[in-house]
Design a protein around this nucleic acid. Structure first.
Lengths: 195, 195
DNA sequence: GTAATAACATACCGATTAGTATGTTTGCGG
DNA sequence: CCGCAAACATACTAATCGGTATGTTATTAC
């Protein structure tokens, strides 16, 4: 990794931790650069403006992270409902990056920017579509093996599960860690009704 | 209504429509006053600072609105599951104030401010607690009349439904109106599993 | 009517914002 | 080792932010 690439990555990573906690709008470029050894010269050499940095942040950090934590655990799972529940439990309770009071970066940015910034909206749409598609494919494989009721609309059930993830990340910020456990129990009940 | 009270209400209402669309942080005091006939003298006479205005906004506009649209339709309902579904359908598809691309003010502010502003966090907590309590009481009444399975944990099911509302308001901003219909269908399925 | 106070308007302030213009250093090919 | 572009640093700008100080007008009490 060349030094220039390392510098770019440093900016993106610092931006992620700050934007995750404070939001996109409340995180200034100066703040991002403050604790690094870098200045505005470096920032605007690697990114034309703040929006382009946000785009790179979503595509190069958030998207791979969601693929690793959300999509990958569902791929080629032999038992879909259990895989979905285990993935969600791991993501909510075990993943060291996420903190209850800060929610999920993808969900947060979707809430903040969907109506305000079209390029970033599209990038976030792609990330969440991947997650939805992963759940849907998992359910469809479950239907193929007879584990899930065939008359179920896989895309709709997948949407509902994604709604649950988005909602619990949001309510977790409001109500705190306790509602994670509650949600997981109720999710397990819901998943059982799919069989 | 005296003129002073009317002025204060004008500021709060204009603030609501702007903050609903742009978020709390991205909405400046100047912008709020721009289209009204008022100036900063009026604003800082009625509110000590922006935070106090936000607090009044939540307590005096958002809270009553959620009570009217979310809590009231569930009160003393004889058929809880149907009342919950009808309320949600009405709130998502018919309420003229809400727009899909902007979500729900209470949910938006909870996402933006829960980790950033403790007084506003507490005010939003109170609003959402009321909604959760309304769903829970509705379910408990359904259990008392034998319409809902007695072994069900009413508080957990209520949390799950609130998670759904928060999530669908969020994903609606991302995916658009179509997922509202999908969510309502899946919500109906979930509610049937409670009987 | 006439103080006195409530209810504003006007003008300003320091801090912060995204972004630019222009310098300086670093690394690498020939 | 030298030249030249890449990879930054420094210094600045205009706009905007929340908030204040001070003025002016409207209302009310007596």
């Amino acid at each position: 990794m060349t030094k220039a690439v390392s510098t770019r990555l440093t900016i993106l990573q610092k931006a992620l931790t700050l934007i995750y906690r404070q939001g996109y709008g409340m995180t200034s470029i100066d703040t991002i650069l403050a604790t690094t050894q870098l200045t505005k010269g470096a920032f605007f050499y690697h990114f034309r403006n703040k929006e382009e940095m946000g785009l790179a942040l979503i595509q190069e950090l958030i998207k791979p992270a969601m693929e690793e934590a959300f999509v990958k655990p569902l791929a080629k799972s032999s038992q879909p409902t259990q895989a979905i529940y285990t993935m969600m439990k791991q993501l909510l309770l075990k993943d060291p990056f996420f903190e209850v009071q800060y929610g999920c970066p993808a969900v947060n940015l979707a809430s903040e920017l969907s109506a305000a910034n079209e390029p970033l909206h599209q990038a976030l749409l792609e990330v969440m579509r991947q997650c939805q598609q992963a759940v849907q494919s998992s359910i469809e494989r479950g239907q193929a093996t007879g584990q899930i009721r065939p008359e179920l609309q896989a895309d709709q059930a997948a949407d509902f599960i994604l709604v649950g993830y988005s909602g619990i990340r949001n309510l977790g910020k409001l109500f705190g860690r306790s509602c994670y456990q509650t949600y997981l129990r109720e999710l397990k009940r819901y998943l059982q009704t799919l069989t």
